[in-house]
Every structure is written in structure tokens, then in C-alpha cells.
């Protein structure tokens, strides 16, 4: 696989959200607006890339049986770093995303990439894989966030384009499930055509 392929496969072909259906909790929980989705995506991208790099660096020194616990410690440390930085420099955003920031630890995408890719590949490829998967995840979050915000609040990244309220349902929990369902259908249709 070429470097470019490693980077881009996470965006469409193996998109972690739309194709692999991983990381559904933050996907639904943090996308009440496009900007929230974007921030969560970037936070995850950051943790994913760093943990992929760290794990591919230390993979040769870790005994097979304690592989998973070691990965979890590494990932949890990066999550805490991101958490502290967000609390210090973007406190508003930190308050909005709430419990989902520490929950990046249990986002299956991150442990999944660590186990499936970073523990078998060199540093550069692992970094590219992390960035690609992170971008794919961010893209999915922004897409869902944009749709929910447009339908639910009638705005795009905070800019109102209709008067009054939108269809409130889409900002609330049920709308998250339903909007994601239809995005999946559209994504599947489009990628089926590409193939």
C-alpha cells in the first residue's frame, strides 16, 4: 500500500464512522451543531495520531500478553493531555463537549487502530493512518453536525439562515439517530456507485 493510500483510505473506503461503524457514541452525542462535531473530531484526530505514533514506537518492547493494557495507558495519557489543554485554553468548548472528552479513551476507533495498524507498522505509516482515520471521523462528525444544525436550528456553523426555530427534534436525541441513518443510506449509495 502506498503512503497516499494509507492516508486516504480512512476518508472514504474504510471510513471509521460510515463504513466500520466505530465510535458511534461521540458521533451521536456531540453533533448537535457543526462546530461541536468539528471540535470533537479534531480532539479525536489528535489523540489518534499521537497514540498511533507512540504505539508503533514502543510496539517491539511490549510483551504480547500486556499489549492491550499498555495501549490503554498510552491512549488514556494522551486523552488526559488533550482534556487538560482544552480546559485551559478553550474552556467553553470543554464545557459543551463535557463527558465525551474523557470518553475518547473508550472510542473503539483508537484502540482498534492501535491493535490493527500501529502495532504492526512503522512510525510514518502509523502516523498517516492515524491522520487519515481521524480526518474520516472528523468529516463524518461535521457532516452529521451540519445536517442536524441546519434542520434543527436553521443555521450553518452558527449563522442563522431562517427566522425562528428549526425542527427541534433534530437537535434532540431522536433526530441524531434518524439523521445518521439517512446519512448512512446516502453514503452507501454514493460509494456503491464509485465501485
Amino acid at each position: 500500500m502506498s503512503k497516499l493510500q494509507i492516508l486516504t483510505k480512512g476518508i472514504i473506503k474504510d471510513n471509521p464512522s460510515f463504513v466500520l461503524l466505530l465510535g458511534m457514541c461521540p458521533m451521536l452525542g456531540t453533533t448537535s451543531s457543526a462546530i461541536n462535531g468539528l471540535s470533537m473530531g479534531i480532539a479525536t484526530l489528535f489523540v489518534l495520531t499521537l497514540s498511533n505514533i507512540a504505539i508503533s514506537l514502543i510496539k517491539d518492547f511490549i510483551p504480547a500478553k500486556v499489549r492491550i493494557p499498555s495501549f490503554i495507558v498510552v491512549i488514556a495519557s494522551f486523552v488526559t493531555v488533550v482534556q487538560l489543554c482544552m480546559e485551559a485554553f478553550v474552556p467553553e468548548l470543554y464545557a459543551t463537549l463535557g463527558v465525551f472528552i474523557p470518553l475518547i479513551v473508550v472510542n473503539c476507533i483508537i484502540l482498534g487502530r492501535a491493535e490493527a495498524f500501529a502495532s504492526k507498522n512503522n512510525v510514518i505509516n502509523s502516523a498517516l493512518d492515524g491522520i487519515g482515520m481521524g480526518l474520516g471521523f472528523t468529516m463524518a462528525l461535521v457532516l452529521l453536525g451540519t445536517v442536524r444544525e441546519a434542520l434543527g436550528a436553521g443555521s450553518f456553523f452558527g449563522f442563522k439562515f431562517i427566522e425562528g426555530d428549526g425542527i427541534l427534534l433534530f437537535v434532540l436525541a431522536p433526530g441524531a439517530f434518524i439523521a445518521l441513518a439517512y446519512l448512512l443510506v446516502i453514503f452507501n449509495k454514493l460509494t456503491a456507485k464509485l465501485k
Binding site: 517491539d60 504480547a64 500478553k65 493494557p69 495507558v73 488526559t80 489543554c85
Partner: peptide, 26 residues
């Protein structure tokens, strides 16, 4: 890498130490 009790305990110890120091610094 083959797992033995010694290297398992040692690896976990080192990883935890290094990461908690890093987090503490941040």
C-alpha cells in the same frame, strides 16, 4: 516479544511511570 512475568510487570511499570510523569508535567 515473549511474555514472562518479569518483563510484563516491568513493561507495565515503565509505561505507567512514563505516562503519569508526562501527564503530571502537562
Amino acid at each position: 516479544m515473549k511474555s514472562s512475568l518479569k518483563n510484563m510487570v516491568l513493561t507495565l511499570l515503565i509505561i505507567t511511570l512514563v505516562s503519569s510523569t508526562a501527564v503530571g508535567l502537562v
